[in-house]
Simulated assay, not measured.
Amino acid sequence: MRRVLVAGAGPVGLTAALALARGGVPVTVLEAGSELAAESRASTFHPPTLEMLAELEVLDELLARGLVARTFQYRDRSGGPIASLDMDVLSGDTPYPFRVQCEQSKLTPILLDHLRRHGGEVLFGREVRSLAVHADEVTATTAGDTFTGDWLIGADGAHSAVRHALGIPFEGLTYPERFLVASADEDLEPLLPGIELINYVFDPAEWLVLLRTPDHWRVLLPTPSDTPDAAELARLPARLRAIADPGRDWKVAHASIYRVHQRIAARFRHGRVLLAGDAAHVNNPLGGLGMNSGIHDAVAVATALLADDDDALDAAASRRREVALNHVRPMSHGTWEKLRSADPAAHHAELRNLAADPHAARTHLLRACLISSLRETA
């Protein structure tokens, strides 16, 4: 294989590129930005993702930068802890029965460093503008430059220029509320007794998610779809103090508001172009499935390319679309529906029973951590 082009230097694109480079394939990554993205974005790594990163020999560096979460908690906004799920029930299924809390911006420099060690190149400021897909090669044109490869992997995000250039439909829904994410320099443990590193908080009026990362507590809040961003950011201090009040406004490092979509590309392969990650499917961030399933896409596509088997590529694209459709979408959407339920107490007994039954907890976690998605589509 002469060369594979990868559009996008996020965790998905760089994972695919590193897997290919380690297999001896020349790789060029074309990244629209001037440098690696520094935003927090995704911050949870599930067990099968950790296994894949271990195979790429980058896991130890991620673990050194992250926090190991062996349990996660469901809470009620007014009543405190409901139940905690112990991921040790997965110890017979994975060598990593835990989640790692670490911003993706800490993983991408690790991947970039390893990719360069294996001879791969990343070119910044190279947004793909157009594609020409031929029977035996793909040509990608950026602003003033043209690149040719045997294959191209589109991992250039939800607004993928690669997907648009191919005219692939991206159907689905947009959620009725926007999501506001704030990163706070606070110690929440004394204010919310029993809080864990990962917390899903039920409330019919204002559900929320609290996640600990190495640098911050991240708070995810639903926000009306039709109000000005400035107005919502202005009322953020009061909303945070309503969660936990330290007697002053929270120290917020940064905050952003974004619309959330649940969409899947009509196909993940178009000739010699393959889609992966957000370029192929997007979902709400509840449960941390987006980046993880995207990394799984990357490994599946790279493995099929290394096999140099057209049927294997078709199968990989088909399997990964099946995962997005039948695993990621229902899991993330189901979590959203439960958190905002008009009767959250109806779920309390269910969750307590789940936490108390190791067999039921294992079955649930196999699906929630995407282990079953890999097994069922193997």
Score class of each variant (00 low, 15 high):
Asn199Val: 06
Pro204Asn: 04
Asp245Gln: 11
Ala304Arg: 03
His327Lys: 05
Ala158Glu: 11
Gly13His: 02
Ala21Trp: 01
Ala135His: 12
Ala182Gly: 04
Ala7Cys: 09
Asp314Asn: 14
Ala360Asn: 06
Gly288Thr: 08
Ala234Cys: 07
Arg375Ile: 15
Ile264Ala: 07
Gly157Met: 03
Ala205Gln: 10
Arg321Met: 10
His296Gly: 14
Gly149Gln: 00
Thr174Pro: 05
Ala7Thr: 11
Leu53Trp: 13
Leu192Val: 14
Ile257Ala: 02
Val128Arg: 04
Leu365Thr: 06
Ala315Leu: 15
Leu275Asp: 07
Gly154Tyr: 07
His134Gln: 12
Thr139Asp: 12
Arg178Tyr: 00
Arg129Cys: 12
Val273Phe: 03
Pro237Lys: 03
Gly125Asn: 10
Leu20Lys: 04
Asp357Val: 02
Ala312His: 07
Ser84Phe: 11
Leu53Asp: 01
Asp76Val: 06
Thr335Asp: 13
Arg241Phe: 07
Val4Tyr: 05
Leu18Met: 03
Ser91His: 14
Arg212Tyr: 04
Ala302Gln: 03
Glu350Thr: 12
Glu376Asn: 13
Arg320Lys: 11
Cys369Trp: 00
Val89Arg: 01
His281Tyr: 08
Ala361Lys: 00
Leu274Lys: 04
Ala182Ser: 12
Ala7Lys: 03
Ser78Arg: 14
Ser332Phe: 02
Pro190Gly: 07
His359Val: 15
Asp226Gln: 10
Pro176Gln: 02
Asn199Glu: 10
Leu166His: 05
Leu286Gly: 02
Ser225Gln: 09
Ile110Ala: 05
Pro358Gln: 09
